[in-house]
Design a protein around this nucleic acid. Structure first.
Lengths: 144, 144
DNA sequence: TTGGCAATCTTGACTCATTCCAGATAACGG
DNA sequence: CCGTTATCTGGAATGAGTCAAGATTGCCAA
């Protein structure tokens, strides 16, 4: 599914630059990475890159639809590979782990209810808050 | 439904202080206010109050379940009056307006889907992104 | 009614994520 | 190969929120 980073950049008419290629390469499938994590990975691949460049690249790639940005409450922005589908996220309250979720009830999980007259929406974003397997195990083990 | 601010504070065993009463009074039904907006309202009521105190009070009231905190992407935290029900929000992308939404399909709008083995969730948070009536009208009028 | 203690508030410094700016650099169409 | 213009660099600045130490003050008990 994911063509090479160069091909993906070309497909959306973005200039082929080392930072862009490295950023795209840095974000693997299923991952949800912070800007600093991405910058670190990029630097191990191509050496010194300004933080600003990483922000610029991420904004350009997001605008082009090559990556997706999510911003969970209490967390800095995270970036992921998977785009184009209307998937959601499940987030662990204690460790912040994020996993992708295919919505169980279709693309538009909730229909517009009453009380929103005139309000027109085009996206329903869902976050499931809970506890990941690891944290559930740890908590159960340490409960008094 | 909402008893006086003093009564509500007493009901959750929180000390009765001027900043707390003023903060509770400042957040009206249906409103979604930023910390600075709340601080401003509080100061018009009781004079000088430190910003830190406003943060502390909001944290205490949130922990006590008297108010609810939401944190939409790209916005500072917002606080609202309505708690205890599992309602959601519709947010205007252009002006940031927030309106409450009763989920159309029940309390748990989406069931846990596949691919989340071991992940246990207790809350599904939904944000509908779109355009409010005012912004829809404005945009339509100015489209080229 | 008065103490006393712990919760609460004040002040001010500080962190973190992100953005703004001006100038240097480099990709790519011609 | 060149020029234009998008990108990148470096550094300062902003905004939201947190941390910490000490001064106040609400409230329970005497």
């Amino acid at each position: 599914m994911p063509a090479s980073s160069r091909e993906r950049l070309g497909a959306v008419a973005l200039r082929l630059t080392a930072p862009r290629i490295a950023v795209l390469d840095a974000i693997g499938p299923g991952q949800h990475l912070r800007v600093d994590q991405i910058a670190e990975r990029v630097r191990t691949r191509i050496g010194r890159v300004s933080t600003q460049a990483v922000y610029d690249v991420l904004a350009a790639l997001t605008a082009a639809g090559l990556i997706r940005r999510i911003e969970p409450a209490g967390s800095p922005a995270l970036f992921e590979n998977r785009v184009g589908d209307n998937h959601h996220h499940m987030i662990c309250r204690s460790c912040g782990a994020v996993v992708d979720v295919d919505c169980a009830v279709g693309a538009a999980p909730c229909l517009t209810p009453s009380g929103t007259a005139g309000f027109h929406y085009d996206e329903a974003e869902i976050v499931f808050w809970g506890s990941c397997p690891d944290c559930t195990a740890t908590t159960e083990g340490t409960l008094s």
